[in-house]
Simulated scan of single mutants.
Amino acid sequence: MKYFIVEDSLDEKVVGKDFPQAYKFIKGYNPDAPNMLFSIYKYRKSFPDYIPDLDGIMLSGSAKLTNIVSNGFSPFFFIIDERVKQLLEQYKLCPHRFYPLGLYKRKVKYNYFLLYIVSNYIDYVDCAKTSFIEYNIASGKKFGDVFIKSKDELFQKRDEIKKEKGYTQTIWGNRIVMNDQFDSELDFFTITRIDGRQYISERLKNAIEANGLTGWVFTPATNLVVE
């Protein structure tokens, strides 16, 4: 299976001049209230046992409507329309939920969905074959190779670097090799813990492009090896 990295489009002709496209709320919507948007944050490894009230997300003033709308809320939140939802439902995704979302452009409401993923595939990384680097999350600066043989060793060395150099300094995956227990039929997932990217299969990428769905761009995942 060939994979690509998913990124939000920055093409102003497509998404407009504001990025991210959605990061504010309409008057009267309180994202901190129970069952509202920010209540989902505590469910990092599971899903809420309720349907969150998401009727109040505002499209930025100079942003354009796209099928997939970039947002400033969480890397695990994706604002999508009905066409994207229907397409994704035909493919194999990491654990996820779709929640109705009201997206407002000025005073006009558009019916969208929040795709919320709980995706953690660190246990399927072959650490002995993967190359790691010391990395600063805040600056994005890379400092050099770190040799790791196991997940336990990875977390031990990460703790040591954090104590010595601060919480933004960590160990990141550079060329990531997934082991033979990984589900190579997955069409959309995030590894997490050592990598912050979202990955999409070539077949799902092609389907998105063939259907003219806007909002995402794709680059080959040359950093990822699926055995």
Results as ranks from 00 to 15, higher is better:
A22S: 13
K2P: 11
R197V: 00
T192Q: 08
G212K: 04
L54K: 01
R44A: 12
F113I: 07
N174L: 08
S201E: 09
L115G: 03
A33D: 06
K162R: 14
W172E: 04
L154W: 04
F188P: 02
L37Y: 07
W216V: 05
K92N: 09
I117V: 15
K142Y: 08
D180K: 09
E160L: 11
N223Y: 00
M1A: 10
S62A: 12
F78N: 09
Y29F: 14
I80T: 13
D183H: 06
V217I: 15
Q169T: 12
S9E: 08
F155W: 13
K42R: 15
I80L: 01
D81R: 08
Q169A: 06
K141G: 00
L10N: 13
R44F: 07
K2V: 04
Y23C: 03
T130E: 03
L186T: 03
T130Q: 11
K85G: 08
I194S: 02
Y23W: 09
D152C: 01
T170V: 07
E82R: 09
M1V: 15
I208H: 01
E153T: 11
R193D: 03
K149A: 13
W172I: 04
P31T: 13
F19G: 02
K163Q: 14
A138L: 12
V108C: 06
Y121G: 14
F147W: 04
Y29K: 10
T192V: 14
Q156P: 06
K107C: 00
K162H: 14
A210D: 13
V125K: 05
Y3K: 12
N30G: 12
T214Y: 00
E227Q: 11
